[in-house]
């Protein structure tokens, strides 16, 4: 069944949230021609519920909740091909990131595993100052429950020196940790404001 989209039902709060996404991504949704060049070249499009162009269309129409619940931003690999090829210079990859963060703050995570991966990745940076593939893969398998996923790749990665017994870290781990903590605290504060119903900027 084809659903009817009631365009006039977009609330002022929805429009405000759409504007906040635009601001945080540094884009103007009205720049988009809807030409589809972004979606034509997207390597992850086959896994998406909406094509990147359609996500922008939802935002153009003020359909914030629909865009926030979309899987597309969580499937996006941030390869930036869309942003590089857009004739209007719209940074589509940045929109995807902004939407993902706004969704997480709203307590939504359409793709649970992407969220788990994100958290582990940030945690990794916080601990070591950089990502350790072995820790990342191991923890992801534990938390996601796919215990044996990609295990067969481990020997090959070890041979190429991509993983090893020694954990990599940066020179000044504490400085990086302070940075990450600061960002996380800011994000958390915004999340709480969002929960209490206030209109917030996702940036």
């Amino acid at each position: 069944m084809v659903q009817i989209l009631d365009l006039s039902a977009a609330t002022q709060a929805d429009l405000g949230s759409v504007a906040a996404i635009a601001k945080s991504a540094g884009v103007d949704f009205d720049d988009c021609y809807q030409c589809g060049k972004c979606s034509a070249g997207c390597p992850m499009a086959h896994e998406m519920d909406f094509l990147p162009r359609q996500v922008i269309r939802l935002l153009q129409l003020g359909q914030y909740q629909e865009a926030l619940g979309a899987h597309t931003p969580w499937v996006c690999a941030n390869c930036m091909v869309c942003s590089a090829r857009c004739p209007q210079g719209v940074d589509i990859a940045a929109i995807m990131l902004s939407l993902r963060r706004a969704a997480k703050r709203a307590g939504l995570r359409p793709e649970k595993e992407t969220d788990i991966f994100d958290d582990i990745f940030v945690g990794n940076i916080r601990r070591f100052g950089k990502s350790n593939e072995a820790v990342l893969a191991g923890m992801f398998n534990l938390k996601s429950g796919h215990l044996m996923q990609d295990v067969l790749n481990a020997p090959k990665m070890a041979v190429r020196g991509m993983i090893g017994p020694k954990l990599h870290s940066v020179h000044d781990k504490d400085a990086v940790r302070q940075l990450v903590d600061k960002c996380l605290a800011a994000e958390k504060a915004k999340g709480q404001a969002a929960q209490s119903g206030g209109e917030v900027s996702p940036s």
């Binding site: 021609y33 809807q34 030409c35 589809g36 060049k37 972004c38 979606s39 034509a40 070249g41 997207c42 499009a45 086959h46 909406f50 094509l51 162009r53 359609q54 091909v81 090829r85 004739p87």
Partner: peptide, 27 residues
């Protein structure tokens, strides 16, 4: 209706990757 994102050669053919924005599918 859609702008072509890329053209590449494969098996003697020129593959044009686009989106038909009217049905919302990659073509």
């Amino acid at each position: 209706r859609g702008r072509v994102s890329k053209i590449f050669e494969q098996g003697g053919k020129l593959i044009c990757k686009g989106e038909d924005t009217l049905i919302g599918k990659q073509v």
